Simulated assay, not measured.
Amino acid sequence: MTHVPPGLTYPEAGATARRPLPAGYHHLHEVGYLGRGRPLFEAAADAVLSWRMHRAAGVRVPAATPRAAPGVTVDLSLGLGPLLQASVTCAVVWAVREERRAGFAYGTLPGHPACGEESFVVTLDGAQDVRLAVTAFSRPAHWSTRAAGPLVPALQRRYARHCVRVLRAEAARRAT
Score class of each variant (00 low, 15 high):
P5W: 09
P5S: 15
G7S: 05
T9H: 04
Y10P: 06
A15E: 12
R18V: 12
R18P: 02
R19S: 15
R19L: 15
P22T: 09
H27W: 14
H27P: 05
H29A: 14
H29D: 15
Y33M: 05
R36D: 13
G37D: 04
G37K: 02
P39S: 02
A43P: 02
A45D: 10
A47F: 04
W51T: 03
R52Q: 14
M53F: 00
R55F: 09
R55M: 05
A56Q: 06
A63H: 02
A63S: 10
A63C: 00
P66S: 00
R67C: 08
R67F: 06
P70A: 14
V72M: 12
V72I: 13
V74P: 06
V74W: 02
L76H: 09
S77A: 14
G79S: 10
G79H: 11
G81R: 07
P82T: 10
L84W: 12
V88A: 09
T89N: 01
V92P: 06
G103P: 10
Y106V: 03
G107N: 10
T108V: 06
T108H: 12
A114W: 11
C115R: 15
E117Q: 07
V122T: 03
Q128H: 06
Q128T: 11
V130N: 14
V130R: 14
V134M: 07
T135N: 01
A136W: 02
P140E: 09
W143G: 03
T145S: 14
R146L: 15
A147E: 02
A148K: 10
G149M: 11
L155I: 13
Q156Y: 14
Q156T: 05
R157L: 11
Y159D: 00
R161S: 11
L167I: 11
A175Q: 07
A175M: 07
T176Q: 13
